[in-house]
Computed example of a mutant assay.
Amino acid sequence: MKTIGLLIVSNIFMTFAWYWHLKATGVPLWKTIVISWSIAFFEYCLTVPANRIGFLEGWNGFQLKIIQEVITLIIFSFFAVLYLKEPLRWNYVVSFGLVLGAVYFAFKK
């Protein structure tokens, strides 16, 4: 559970680092890069231990990556709707559902 918690928090940082500037078009690109890298530093400080802990608890690399992608999609969905004000269309929901299917198969023994 610690792995999931760390991945959730790290993905919040990652989403802001990668996408906050889409609405801040008045900020020069070089400043955007510096700010994004500064935010991403905290993401890495959480993602690396999350993956190490998960691996030591018995998850393999494929499982860690797939669960991280699902968390990323969930966090990004909230970000896109709430911050970017983009609609969550039916085809995005279906696509996310297919990714959740991938999680099922990745963790199936």
Rank of each mutant, 00 (worst) to 15 (best):
F55P: 00
L7Y: 06
G97P: 12
K23T: 15
I67G: 00
Q68Y: 00
L84V: 01
A40E: 07
Q63L: 05
L46Y: 10
L7K: 04
I8M: 00
I4P: 01
I12P: 02
N91Y: 11
K65R: 09
S95L: 13
I33E: 01
A50G: 01
F105Y: 12
S77K: 03
A106P: 12
Y83G: 05
P49A: 08
K108Q: 11
T25W: 04
V94F: 14
G58H: 07
C45H: 04
V99I: 14
A106Q: 12
V70Q: 07
G58F: 07
I67F: 08
N11Y: 06
K108S: 14
L84K: 03
T25S: 14
K108V: 14
S10E: 10
V99D: 00
E69Q: 07
G5M: 06
M1F: 11
G26H: 08
V94H: 00
L88S: 14
L7G: 04
F79D: 11
L6A: 12
F105I: 11
A24R: 10
V27T: 15
L100R: 01
K65D: 03
Y83F: 13
F42E: 02
V81K: 10
Y104I: 14
Q63N: 02
I12F: 03
L100G: 02
S77L: 15
K85W: 03
I39Y: 02
N51V: 13
W59I: 14
K65Q: 09
V34M: 12
S95T: 11
E69V: 13
Y19L: 12
G26P: 01
G58C: 05
I39M: 11
S77C: 13
G26V: 05
L56W: 04
I53W: 10
S77E: 08
F13W: 01
W18P: 08
L98Q: 11
I8P: 02
N60C: 07
L82D: 03
I12G: 06
K65W: 03
L82F: 07
P87D: 08
F79W: 06
V103S: 08
P28G: 05
L98S: 08
I39E: 06
V94R: 02
G26S: 06
V48I: 15
F105N: 00
I75V: 15
S95N: 09
W37P: 05
T72I: 09
I74A: 14
I66G: 03
T32W: 02
I8V: 15
I67S: 10
M1R: 09
V81F: 11
W18K: 12
V70D: 02
I8S: 01
A40D: 09
V34L: 15
F55C: 01
I39S: 04
P49Y: 06
F78Q: 04
Y104G: 07
L88T: 09
G61T: 14
W20T: 09
A17W: 13
Y92V: 09
K2E: 01
E43C: 08
T15S: 03
A80V: 01
V70P: 02
V99T: 10
A17P: 11
W59V: 08
